[in-house]
Design a protein around this nucleic acid. Structure first.
Lengths: 291, 291
DNA sequence: ATAGGAGTAT
DNA sequence: ATACTCCTAT
């Protein structure tokens, strides 16, 4: 018997938005510690990994470990009908082949109940070595999303160079090339507006939003997220922007992303929130090929 | 060597939005007086003309005249990554075949640098006679945008009649016909909301915007733009709404548009802002044909 | 050619 | 927050 109650359905909605374009079906492994998911993307290039720790639920009960095979598109169809503030309870009997989901409006009396059919999925559990990386860049997740989007307008891949001075993102393409530099310590607004006249009004609106959801949200007060770099050794790596853009969809989960890199080793792109994380792994492009 | 610094990238963003659907590639002619562009639309029906005077830049430097062939879609991909408040500097060497663009965040340390490849474009400089028009109608550009949009829902073309009493826009179509009259001197709100519940909030936001950008914007205080008509002789002309709707995309550049008309002569539709203008020319339909 | 996703505008 | 439009992927 699994029963887990999430006071803010929004968390699961965002997790799903973060991975569903990369992963279509996956096993969710439930234990007394929480719920984990791990899967390669459809073209077996990127690895996505999700953890929702039991502390994030209240109550959380899982009598014995079980692996739940879920079609993420089916789950998404259901979960997107939940309000962000809804209280979400998921339940599974030890023997059933369906997952129960109940959404309760936080204020209203509205109650929606779903039973989602489960799937049998061959899981290929990849052990991920707990690597020590040469460079860790922490920055605003919104800024990361913007950079991947902007550079995606120009080229197919991005070269990331990290030195102790800062990070450099550069990209070449048919229309020209682009280079973007962030200095260590420079703060980017947590929310970056690129197309509004009234940046301040927008900021205000977002600040209000933040205050409103602050009670149940991952992180505290400041509106800007500085670029922080931990560096053992300078790195220079090239990645497919298509994948990084996908990873950036996890940005709504938390205000900061951590990029863990070593030369010639897969990137770990981590979005950590209060009681869990979404992590993506992506091998670098080896040289100037298939751009 | 060309070097021009624009303290508000928004100006160029808006200019581009105004013309990029009509013009895909064009030469930008730079001289010590500023930057000009002139091009027919793809179907050679409408002429678009842009002027950005040197006074709008600080600093502005152009050692000798040069013509820069630009793909507007490429430029748009780049320019839309700039924040409206970003400081934008464009640079071109005398011999290079690329245009450098640098966006600097007004508040943050973010710096984005682009090198955009240029094109060779056969330019066909049309001399535009400095005509004296029989009628000049000045009105709110937002109102103009609304009228073209509204009438576009009804018909393919619009007949514009100007008398000293006012302007009349009328359109016939399959679903019926529409007629819209503006009296001389009647003030239209600079921003017209037609489909929002919360008109007041919207008005407030726009008012704030105006206050904020007022320092650097074309004209002073009032929130309403009266319809003003200068008339030598009444005119009655019919135009394709498809084109007028496109012209109206320049509305964000300034609060007033000037429609210059004489019977059987191309319309001049002018959006003038502080240090430049966007102008469109369009020949009238001759009679009740191809509607 | 159709469907889905992203971005933009209201 | 919702709707519409554009672009990309299948």
């Amino acid at each position: 018997m699994l029963e887990a109650r999430l006071s803010q359905a929004a968390v699961l909605k965002k997790v799903l938005d973060a991975v569903r374009e990369l992963v279509t079906d996956a096993n969710f492994d439930c234990s007394e510690e929480g719920i984990r998911m791990q899967a390669m993307d459809n073209s077996h290039v990127a690895l996505s990994s999700v953890e929702l720790r039991c502390e994030g639920f209240d109550p959380y009960r899982c009598d014995r470990p079980m692996s739940i095979g879920i079609s993420l598109s089916a789950l998404n169809k259901i979960i997107k009908t939940a309000g962000n503030e809804d209280v979400l309870t998921i339940k599974k009997d030890d023997d059933g082949d369906s997952l129960g989901l109940v959404f309760e409006g936080s204020k209203t009396d509205r109650v929606a109940e779903y039973d989602m059919k489960l799937m049998d999925i061959d899981s290929e559990h990849l052990g991920i070595p707990d690597t020590q990386y040469d460079a860790v860049v922490r920055m605003s997740s919104a800024e990361f999303a913007r950079i991947t989007r902007d550079l995606g307008n120009v080229g197919e891949s991005v070269k990331i160079d990290v030195t102790k001075e800062g990070v450099n993102f550069s990209s070449d393409g048919e229309i020209g090339n682009a280079k973007l530099t962030l200095k260590q310590g420079s703060g980017s607004a947590a929310a970056v507006d690129d197309d509004d006249d009234d940046d301040e009004d927008e900021e205000d609106k977002k600040a209000k939003k933040k205050r409103k959801t602050a009670s149940g949200s991952a992180a505290g007060g400041e509106d800007t997220v500085p670029v922080r770099i931990q560096l053992q050794q300078s790195v220079s790596l090239t990645f497919s922007l298509k994948y990084l853009t996908n990873f950036a969809k996890a940005a709504p989960l938390c205000k900061e992303v951590a990029l863990h890199m070593s030369n010639e080793v897969p990137l770990l792109c981590e979005f950590a929130f209060e009681n869990g994380h979404v992590r993506f792994y992506l091998a670098p492009k080896l040289s100037e090929d298939d751009e």
